[in-house]
């Protein structure tokens, strides 16, 4: 279980949070998109092996949404940042604690 640093409440167990997939996918102007571009917005999110900036909400705590960098292989958590603030740089590669599947 992840230990997630809520920017408002500090380190809390993953069970208090809901996951919100890739961060930084803005709601597009629906009327300027083709059907396939709109379907891509609806259904396609990055799911890389490695670092991913993703959205979380402290559902059972303060109820606030925030973003963080997480390594999907090592579950290492990088910088945490609030919505509408500048995204911090992707953390550097660290030693992998174990190969992912």
């Amino acid at each position: 279980m992840l230990n997630i640093p809520c920017p408002h409440c500090g380190l809390r167990n993953e069970t208090e949070f809901h996951y919100g997939a890739e961060a930084g996918v803005a709601y597009p102007d629906p009327n300027t998109l083709t059907d396939s571009e709109w379907a891509k917005y609806l259904h396609i999110r990055a799911n890389p092996k490695g670092w991913l900036a993703e959205r979380w909400v402290h559902f059972a705590g303060c109820g606030r949404w925030f973003n963080l960098w997480r390594n999907t292989i090592t579950h290492e958590i990088g910088p945490v940042y609030l919505p509408f603030t500048t995204q911090p740089k992707m953390p550097g590669n660290t030693v992998q604690e174990g190969p992912g599947k």
């Binding site: 919100g20 803005a26 709601y27 959205r55 606030r64 949404w65 919505p83 509408f84």
Partner: peptide, 13 residues
């Protein structure tokens, strides 16, 4: 309520 909050916080601040 969570749905309303998500839009307010993450799309329409």
């Amino acid at each position: 309520l969570a749905w309303l909050e998500e839009w307010l916080q993450t799309e329409w601040p």
